[in-house]
């Protein structure tokens, strides 16, 4: 459960002004390029300072310790940037278990087992080094790590941007393996994906967030035209993976 109250955030100059919304269910965040979708996600995870109030499960974001915040909410960036390229896939995914690790000890055997399973499901090779992965594989890697983190709220930023249809299905299957209680937030430009996910829609504008609890209202041609400023045709002849 996320409650955002009059939040303004950004970098050298603010990107988002006075945004308010609250969401209990899964959410798809849409909006034009550069409007601040990723900025909002970073503010929700406490990576950038924000004015206003952000409540995660009823608690102020700033009241969380670093470890508890990682258990409550996490964010998966669209691509991986790492100084150390020699970390293996296994080591990388294992780091998702960091918030559960006892200080002064190594990762537990239970953590190791969970990670081994997640890597098998992700179609990656445990021993490969992360610098050798393609951008699509890096995306699968980041997703696998976030799944091992088991946060209550997971924000996916453009999760399928670099994935072929088969691996996009892998991502979709991964979403379905998450517990019901996990709140999933997906940032995307892919309207077909957004529609197939069937989540509530949050359409982000510079100084407002329009919340559509019923996605069908958002996906009407005249509403889309109002939101994006271009005309849309909607028909059923699109090619899309059968996500069922």
């Amino acid at each position: 459960m996320i409650v955002v109250e009059a939040v303004s955030c950004g970098y050298q100059r603010p990107v988002l002004h006075d945004i308010s919304f609250s969401a209990e269910g899964d959410l798809c965040v849409l909006g034009v390029n550069g409007i601040g979708k990723s900025t909002l996600a970073k503010a929700l995870c406490g990576l950038i300072p924000a004015r206003g109030e952000i409540l995660i499960d009823g608690k102020d974001l700033h009241s969380f310790s670093a470890g508890l915040r990682a258990k409550a909410i996490t964010y998966i960036p669209p691509k991986l940037e790492s100084f150390d390229g020699l970390i293996t896939v296994h080591e990388f995914v294992l780091m998702g278990r960091y918030p559960y690790k006892d200080p002064f000890t190594a990762y537990s055997e239970k953590d190791e087992k969970l990670v081994t399973t997640l890597i098998e499901e992700s179609t990656l090779e445990a021993g490969h080094r992360i610098s050798e992965l393609s951008s699509g594989q890096q995306q699968l890697l980041l997703i696998a790590q976030a799944l091992s983190q088991q946060s209550d709220i997971i924000i996916f930023d453009e999760p399928t941007a670099n994935l072929d249809p088969r691996h996009a299905k892998t991502f979709y299957d991964a979403l379905n393996t998450l517990p019901e209680t996990t709140q999933k937030i997906v940032i995307t430009h892919d309207l077909n994906l957004a529609r197939q996910l069937g989540f509530e829609i949050l359409f982000l504008q510079e100084d407002a967030a329009r919340h559509f609890k019923d996605p069908n209202i958002f996906f009407q041609a005249d509403n889309l035209e109002k939101c994006y400023g271009v005309t849309f045709t909607i028909n059923e002849d699109v090619i899309g993976v059968a996500y069922d």
């Binding site: 990576l47 940037e81 100084f83 970390i87 998702g96 960091y98 983190q149």
Partner: peptide, 13 residues
């Protein structure tokens, strides 16, 4: 060694 944001997202102060 991955990056600062990544460490914070995983719960490192």
């Amino acid at each position: 060694a991955i990056n600062d944001d990544h460490a914070r997202l995983k719960g490192v102060d």
